[in-house]
């Protein structure tokens, strides 16, 4: 049975995919984000664009390829998401 993922959880999954997957400063391409976060191309690009606009993710160009790295704000967001996920879980709820 597939587990329902809320919008907040999907965003956190995309951010942690970028965080875990990017090696050094080279960042992560959209294809790897799609694979790691288990999203469709359309949905992934939409979310990544929103994350870039909100300053959580930075877009860089490496060898003519668009890559994504987590900004300082994105790392902070991921950390607070993890903390508050534990908090909500103590009430038997999921973020």
């Amino acid at each position: 049975m597939s587990v329902y993922r809320s919008q907040v959880k999907i965003v956190a999954d995309v951010l942690s995919s970028i965080n875990d997957g990017s090696e050094g400063q080279s960042g992560l391409g959209i294809t790897r984000i799609i694979q790691k976060a288990n999203l469709s191309y359309g949905r992934a690009t939409k979310i990544v664009t929103r994350l870039v606009d909100s300053g959580l993710v930075e877009q860089i160009t490496v060898d003519n390829n668009q890559r994504y790295v987590l900004s300082h704000k994105g790392i902070e967001y991921l950390r607070s998401h993890s903390d508050f996920a534990d908090f909500a879980e103590s009430f038997g709820m999921k973020l």
């Binding site: 907040v8 967001y77 607070s80 998401h81 508050f84 908090f87 909500a88 973020l95």
Partner: peptide, 16 residues
């Protein structure tokens, strides 16, 4: 919960 909502925009934390 309020701090959590401000930082994550989670509806669960808003309800809490």
């Amino acid at each position: 919960s309020r701090e959590g909502y401000r930082n994550t925009r989670s509806p669960t934390l808003l309800r809490l």
